[in-house]
């Protein structure tokens, strides 16, 4: 009896805050409801609307743009800096801590910071460009550039985490491999590409998954910087759910969006897993 008593708080918690919401969210997809007036059964209307909803597809497209820039950039920079930090250098702790600082700070702070860098007229980046004799760039006001700008900002915020993950990954590579390569006279970067890279595939997979889930969770950055604009080019999955649910109180449709985004996240991660496993 005692084991059940001990886990009972979690079971109650799970039933109320996880199991019931999942089932209720599926139920909501067949209804029209704004919480205040009575719920109306709407059949498959939410699903039909979803498949005709250009904004839904736009937000998925935006997320993929984000990921297409964020993931490669993050992996290349993190691997490069981790490889450098992995050598015998002074002040390693300081550099690691500096790269890691944006990871612990709130996304709200990072976003407010980058707002000052990305500003069109007075932003720091454009001031530098102008002083070097170039024209201004519409980091956040050009629909083609807004999402890439956010992806670069997210890379800056998270790369410290991935540096540390790669540093941990490097420790898992058996030392004998490098010793054998040294006997063959392999250069530093040869060893890196021929031995280290293939051996840390699990870490790369972890980075890809964390970034993917992160990309689909993107919210506060566009919420503060652009509100989803210009021309919905930074409308993220969560921002769209948020607007439908808590702006328009379309609980049924917002649930349908949530369900589909969740399905897409899970499928993308499964596909990535297959793809990366094949690479090994």
């Amino acid at each position: 009896m005692i084991p059940y008593l001990i886990i009972s708080p979690y079971i109650i918690f799970f039933l109320i805050f996880i199991a019931f919401p999942v089932l209720f969210s599926i139920f909501l997809t067949f209804n029209k409801w704004n919480i205040i007036s009575p719920m109306q059964f709407s059949g498959f209307k939410n699903y039909i609307r979803l498949f005709q909803d250009a904004l839904f597809f736009k937000s998925i497209y935006n997320t993929f743009i984000f990921l297409a820039i964020n993931i490669p950039l993050q992996i290349v920079i993190a691997l490069f800096l981790a490889e450098i930090l992995n050598q015998k250098i002074k002040f390693r702790g300081f550099f690691r801590a500096a790269f890691f600082l944006p990871v612990v700070v709130s996304g709200v702070v990072v976003t407010i910071l980058w707002q000052q860098l990305y500003g069109f007229d007075t932003g720091l980046l454009n001031r530098i460009l102008v002083s070097l004799g170039f024209g201004r760039i519409g980091w956040l006001i050009d629909p083609k550039l807004a999402m890439p700008s956010i992806a670069i900002m997210a890379t800056w915020k998270n790369v410290g985490l991935y540096i540390v993950l790669f540093l941990v990954g490097f420790q898992t590579v058996p030392k004998q491999y490098y010793e054998a390569a040294d006997l063959e006279g392999a250069s530093h970067w040869q060893k890196f590409f021929k031995i280290t890279m293939p051996m840390i595939n699990p870490t790369i997979f972890l980075v890809v998954i964390l970034s993917t889930v992160g990309g689909f969770s993107l919210f506060i950055e566009p919420y503060i910087l652009t509100g989803g604009g210009p021309l919905n080019s930074t409308l993220s999955a969560v921002l769209y759910i948020y607007k439908e649910g808590f702006f328009y109180y379309h609980m049924g449709y917002a649930s349908t969006l949530g369900l589909f985004f969740a399905l897409i996240i899970v499928s993308v991660v499964v596909i990535q897993k297959k793809f990366i496993e094949k690479e090994v």
């Binding site: 799970f14 919401p21 999942v22 969210s25 689909f216 969770s217 999955a237 759910i241 949530g258 985004f261």
Partner: peptide, 22 residues
């Protein structure tokens, strides 16, 4: 069940959890 909750994207429970709060 606990492993399952880890893989469950929060996007799916956001709206119902808000309704529970209401």
């Amino acid at each position: 069940i606990i492993i399952f909750t880890m893989t469950l994207p929060f996007q799916i429970t956001l709206i119902p959890q808000y309704i529970i709060m209401v």
